[in-house]
């Protein structure tokens, strides 16, 4: 297995998990909109913690979902660790499901269609080729500007 295929698998798995859990997280946090969800030191209040624990989010070596401490956004992180042939690849997908101001949950976001789960090795290779060609063209275009350069300083 190539390194790229491991990466593609890791990213797709994280995004798939993110797609599965965000509606459940939004549902769990709906009753808290307009209420304080962070304690003074910045932890989630006990009620929210209980609500999250009830969801029984995945937590194993391959997929782990955890709350990320932040004062401005309600963020959960899906970490995947994909192993292929003794090689590990880590990927974090961030779920920014809401905004927080002064510890109060202001609103929740709709993340529908935000995470792609259909990345393929071929697609990445194709995009890399496009990028390489664009870089070469940019280099040539920059060379053609000589001796004037991009700006008049």
């Amino acid at each position: 297995m190539s390194k790229l295929s491991t990466r593609v698998r890791g990213v797709n798995l994280a995004n798939k998990t993110a797609n599965e859990i965000w509606p459940r997280l939004v549902e769990a946090f709906k009753p808290f909109v307009g209420y304080r969800i962070l304690t003074k030191p910045g932890n989630l209040v006990a009620k929210c913690e209980k609500a999250v624990k009830k969801l029984d989010l995945p937590c194993n070596v391959v997929v782990r979902v955890y709350w990320r401490r932040s004062e401005h956004t309600l963020t959960f992180c899906v970490t995947t660790c994909v192993d292929e042939g003794g090689r590990a690849f880590y990927y974090d997908a961030m779920l920014n499901i809401g905004d927080i101001r002064d510890g109060v949950l202001e609103k929740l976001h709709d993340l529908n269609g935000y995470f792609r789960t259909d990345y393929t090795e071929e697609e990445i290779l194709r995009k890399r080729e496009v990028f390489e060609a664009a870089k070469r063209a940019a280099g040539e275009a920059e060379g053609a500007l000589y001796p004037f350069g991009e700006y008049d300083r």
């Binding site: 932890n43 989630l44 913690e49 624990k53 989010l57 955890y66 709350w67 990320r68 401490r69």
Partner: peptide, 11 residues
């Protein structure tokens, strides 16, 4: 470690 896991809402 235990406190860290609790803070992240992990079992």
């Amino acid at each position: 470690v235990r406190r860290g896991m609790r803070r992240m809402c992990l079992p």
